[in-house]
Simulated assay, not measured.
Amino acid sequence: MRTLLGKTGVAVGALALMASPLLVTAPASAADAKSCSHGFSNKSSKTGRIIGDGVNVRTGPHTSCGSTGALNYDDGVYFHCWTTGTNVHGESRWWHIRVNTTNWQGWVSNYYLRAVPPTAGEKC
């Protein structure tokens, strides 16, 4: 009898844990799952300039992705490709860039870049 109650108690406890809302680890929606590991390739030959000060260069096309540093007004960049990401002041296009004369690369919102019209062939 004691063994049966012990096993029943363990089973009831396990069921209670499985039903607990605290164990849910999935994001609330697909929009919450923003990846900072977005692929890119060099599909553009365009160059451009930054139009802001302290503009973050990020590890992915989202404001929640880490910053590897900041650029300032008129810093030059080479464009690789673009994708959609976090909306920044009405602009959801982000460019993967390389800073002129360096190997520093990352993502910058199109909002902070001097007029860069995209083409479909430049999409990441």
Rank of each mutant, 00 (worst) to 15 (best):
M1A: 14
T3F: 12
L4P: 03
L4H: 09
G6K: 11
K7P: 02
G9I: 02
V12S: 09
G13L: 15
G13E: 13
A14T: 13
L17G: 08
L17K: 06
M18S: 09
M18Y: 05
A19R: 02
S20L: 11
S20G: 06
L22R: 08
L22K: 07
L23G: 15
V24M: 13
T25A: 11
A30W: 08
A31F: 10
A33H: 11
S35I: 03
C36R: 03
C36T: 07
H38M: 15
H38Y: 07
G39M: 08
F40W: 15
F40S: 13
S41T: 11
S41I: 03
K43P: 01
S44F: 10
S44D: 10
S44P: 05
S45E: 13
S45V: 15
K46M: 11
G48K: 08
I51P: 06
G52I: 07
G52N: 02
D53A: 08
V57F: 05
G60Q: 06
P61H: 04
P61S: 01
H62V: 01
H62K: 00
T63I: 14
T63C: 05
G66P: 00
G66Q: 13
S67G: 07
T68P: 00
G69T: 02
G69S: 02
L71Q: 10
L71D: 04
N72T: 12
N72H: 14
D74E: 15
D75P: 09
V77H: 05
V77Q: 07
Y78S: 12
F79K: 02
H80I: 00
W82T: 05
W82V: 01
W82N: 06
T83W: 03
G85R: 01
N87Y: 02
V88Y: 02
H89Y: 12
G90Y: 01
E91P: 01
E91H: 07
E91A: 11
S92M: 07
R93M: 08
W94E: 03
W94S: 00
V99N: 04
V99C: 01
V99H: 04
T102I: 00
T102Y: 02
N103P: 01
W104N: 09
W104I: 14
G106E: 12
W107N: 04
V108Y: 04
V108Q: 03
Y111V: 08
R114I: 06
R114M: 12
A115F: 04
A115T: 14
P117S: 14
P117F: 04
T119Q: 11
T119Y: 09
G121S: 15
E122I: 00
E122K: 11
K123S: 06
C124D: 01
